[in-house]
Design a protein around this nucleic acid. Structure first.
Ligand SMILES: [Mn+2]
Ligand SMILES: [Mn+2]
Ligand SMILES: [Mn+2]
Ligand SMILES: [Mn+2]
Lengths: 147, 147
DNA sequence: TTCGAATGTTAGCCGAAGCTAAGAAGGATG
DNA sequence: CATCCTTCTTAGCTTCGGCTAACATTCGAA
């Protein structure tokens, strides 16, 4: 019992870090630098909150900062950002694939992404690239064989 | 921007309440009463933590308690529990449907359930009951009006 | 009936993630 | 240069959800 809940709790601990490095990487890709004000607007939280969060990220080795300078990602931060962006994109694309509207897919994927294990992510990717799995006996039988 | 993040933050605020009322309802269904020790074992946290959490649930009108007595759900608590259990079951069943192993489905659904909107839940239910959407050239649109 | 184990409560601590309010640093414009 | 506005930092507060340690209550055995 309760392996689930421990996983959910630990997912939440890394969730903020994941969203921040992803956003920082996006700003850097987009306009070459990321300032804390960019994150204030992006996450819709206060300057003080961004400052505290960035301090934790620096403590944990994901970013480097200097007073009044842009925020830079460490190699570790870049690795995490890339992995998170891919995972996020997969989850969002999968929601669209099952018929969810674009607006809802954007919102739901933002929360869901952090709780998707490697195995579930692979299942989603497989469906996105190979199509729906074959229905096993007892199912409602609709798509017939392949394509 | 950031509508997503506000939703994710507010999902987290209700997440613990949802898991607790669901567990309490399960214990009551199973053995007629729920004692705080049941929750200690179920969530694998300490007595003190369960006590604090239950106090918040009572403050918010989901449960009633009396010293050394079992924990009882209010009507509001029962409503929430029922809705959460259904949603949880749907998410777990859907993960199985896309080919995730039972053990992983149990773990991932515990976190994912809290971030699944009504619309996404409906999409999952539709697939569980009607089978995969028709594949149509160019995308995943499922033509045909409803039903 | 007393006593010890199991169960429940309380007090006090911590870190994460939010906030407000105050002030410092820097840059554009006169 | 001085000024003013934007940007950034710092201090101090809150709630939540964890924890440990100490204490209280209940209840079944001896
Ligand atoms: Mn996210
Ligand atoms: Mn979550
Ligand atoms: Mn649940
Ligand atoms: Mn859950």
């Amino acid at each position: 019992m309760s392996k689930q809940h421990q996983r959910t709790r630990s997912d939440h601990a890394s969730e903020i870090a994941e969203d921040y490095v992803e956003a920082i990487a996006d700003f850097i890709a987009d306009k070459d630098v990321c300032r804390s004000g960019d994150l204030v607007r992006h996450f819709n939280v206060t300057h003080a909150t961004v400052n505290n969060t960035i301090a934790r990220l620096e403590r944990d080795g994901f970013v480097t900062t200097a007073p009044y300078q842009p925020i830079a990602l460490t190699a570790r931060g870049r690795r995490l950002a890339t992995a998170c962006r891919k995972r996020h994109e997969t989850v969002e694309a999968f929601l669209l694939k099952i018929g969810v509207s674009p607006a809802t897919a954007v919102i739901d994927s933002e929360g869901i992404e952090h709780h998707v294990s490697r195995e579930t992510l692979d299942a989603m990717k497989r469906i996105l690239s190979d199509g729906w799995p074959d229905e096993v006996a007892g199912g409602s039988r609709r798509g017939d064989g392949l394509h």
